[in-house]
């Protein structure tokens, strides 16, 4: 009966797994390997991938950004997808990898945090949120074996420590804290390499934003999967800042201005 379930704690993810396993992100369960003489795993048809995302710490908290392109093999499958999501008042998640399960993970994680907050009447600690996400990424492991890899970055403002924090994940649900910056996705290495010489402690928000845009621009230049700013259609990377005062979107005109200046700068150098 509907309201007489045995208690599944304050986690929506666990509740979903126990009550509606068919609707959860863990589904489908590993497809049985077809015994073939070639021993090659059955290849999935092409599906969209989200590409480059990054997070960088600055003096007020964390800035998170991502490009807008979804790539399917050698094709662009989407030019406007979003990879950075607000998950509650003081946290965001950015996703890279198989776009379908990744966006689903972000949505489920947002509900997870809200669900906990409503049931308990309290907000999870920053660390608690990061750990819960690790369990959810680990839950995706069977799908990762099928090639549906999902890699998020979690950024939150820790209200107790009064500082922004960045957590990166691996496919097994491993959770590692980064204290400066991080980027992942197909252009992740290029983005990290850009941020490395530019990063320093106590960046201001405009400085951090500029570095983030430069990193994404370089990633788009070097990696075919990552989309650069699209001046024709007016599509620019998305950025959010997470501070003590909450999560705020960086306005598109501001991002457009930085991208324009960046390109002007390159043109002069060329």
């Amino acid at each position: 009966m509907l309201f007489r379930d045995d208690d599944s704690g304050s986690s929506f993810y666990d509740f979903l797994l126990s009550k509606r396993p068919e609707a959860s992100a863990r589904f489908p369960h590993p497809i049985p390997q077809v015994q073939s003489h070639a021993q090659a795993p059955a290849a999935l048809p092409p599906f969209p991938h989200g590409t480059t995302i990054l997070a960088i710490r600055y003096q007020d908290g964390v800035l998170m950004a991502g490009d807008r392109q979804a790539t399917e093999g050698f094709q662009v499958s989407g030019r406007r997808i979003e990879k950075v999501f607000k998950t509650d008042d003081h946290s965001t998640i950015a996703i890279a990898g198989a776009a379908g399960p990744a966006i689903e993970l972000a949505r489920l994680f947002q509900i997870e945090l809200e669900h906990y907050e409503k049931l308990e009447g309290d907000i999870l600690s920053c660390e608690g949120k990061a750990n819960k996400l690790a369990q959810m990424v680990r839950g995706n492991l069977p799908m990762a074996f099928q090639g549906l890899v999902v890699i998020p970055i979690f950024a939150g403002y820790d209200l107790k420590r009064r500082e922004g924090r960045i957590f990166k994940y691996d496919v097994t649900g491993g959770r590692y804290e980064e204290i400066e910056y991080y980027a992942v996705g197909s252009g992740g290495k290029d983005a990290r390499d850009t941020m490395k010489p530019l990063y320093r402690r106590d960046l201001t928000e405009p400085q951090a934003l500029k570095i983030a845009m430069e990193a994404l621009y370089n990633a788009a230049e070097e990696d075919v999967g990552t989309g650069g700013p699209d001046f024709v259609r007016g599509i620019y990377p998305i950025a959010k800042v997470i501070t003590e005062h909450g999560v705020r979107d960086v306005e598109t005109p501001r991002i457009a201005e930085i991208c324009t200046a960046l390109i002007e700068n390159r043109r002069e150098r060329a």
Binding site: L2, D7, F15, L16, L108, K118
Partner: peptide
């Protein structure tokens, strides 16, 4: 309290599905 929690689960599940 039991009813409250069940209601939140019901609402969140429906909103998710």
């Amino acid at each position: 309290e039991m009813l409250r929690k069940a209601g939140i689960r019901h609402a969140d599940l429906k909103g998710y599905m």
